[in-house]
């Protein structure tokens, strides 16, 4: 038996396609892939919300809460931006009563990862290398491919718990 080298929880991003039966289409973020889809639909069926470059800010969240509140059951959400931001949007959509299959994500705009520290439960943004120092507790974390959809983050575990003097070589994340 062969062990699958890919961590199953790591999301895959398929090309975004229009959910043709949806009554309302909500586009969040700016990107060429979304522009083309947006242009292909009748404008009265579409809502476009810009932003996302700075993640899910308080202002954007307040705006989206209002927009989600107007959506009918048969809606579709398309989002682009950083991986963590897109999963934040997915979690907002689920809380608003939408299903996973109603939220489609573009390929993440960068390779930067959001990292969840399994020791202090805090988040470190923009991670590109492993190991990475936790921005909150300072532990040196192995950045795993294991993904938490709830946190929209990769899981980080201390890499040198037994010998803090042991500092492994840094690798770039893909």
């Amino acid at each position: 038996m062969q062990i699958d080298p890919r961590i199953k929880s790591r999301p895959l991003y398929d090309p975004v396609v229009i959910r043709s039966k949806a009554k309302k289409h909500l586009f969040i973020g700016a990107g060429a892939e979304l522009d083309a889809l947006y242009a292909s639909l009748p404008q009265e069926q579409c809502i476009r919300v810009a932003g996302g470059a700075d993640g899910l800010t308080e202002a954007l969240r307040a705006e989206l809460d209002k927009v989600f509140d107007t959506l009918p059951l048969a809606s579709a959400v398309y989002v682009c931006g950083s991986e963590g931001f897109m999963w934040d949007i997915r979690n907002l959509a689920l809380a608003a009563g939408l299903a996973d299959e109603q939220v489609q994500m573009c390929k993440p705009s960068t390779k930067e990862r959001r990292l969840f520290c399994t020791h202090c439960y805090e988040i470190t943004e923009g991670v590109t290398h492993s190991p990475q120092v936790c921005s909150a507790c300072g532990r040196l974390l192995l950045v795993r491919d294991h993904y938490s959809k709830l946190h929209g983050a990769y899981v980080g575990v201390q890499i040198n718990a037994e010998d803090p003097a042991d500092i492994p070589e840094t690798e770039e994340l893909v």
Binding site: A74, A99, E101
Partner: peptide, 10 residues
């Protein structure tokens, strides 16, 4: 439900 655009998981 499919025709109305319901999500299948609901």
């Amino acid at each position: 439900t499919e025709e109305l655009g319901w999500p299948a998981s609901h």
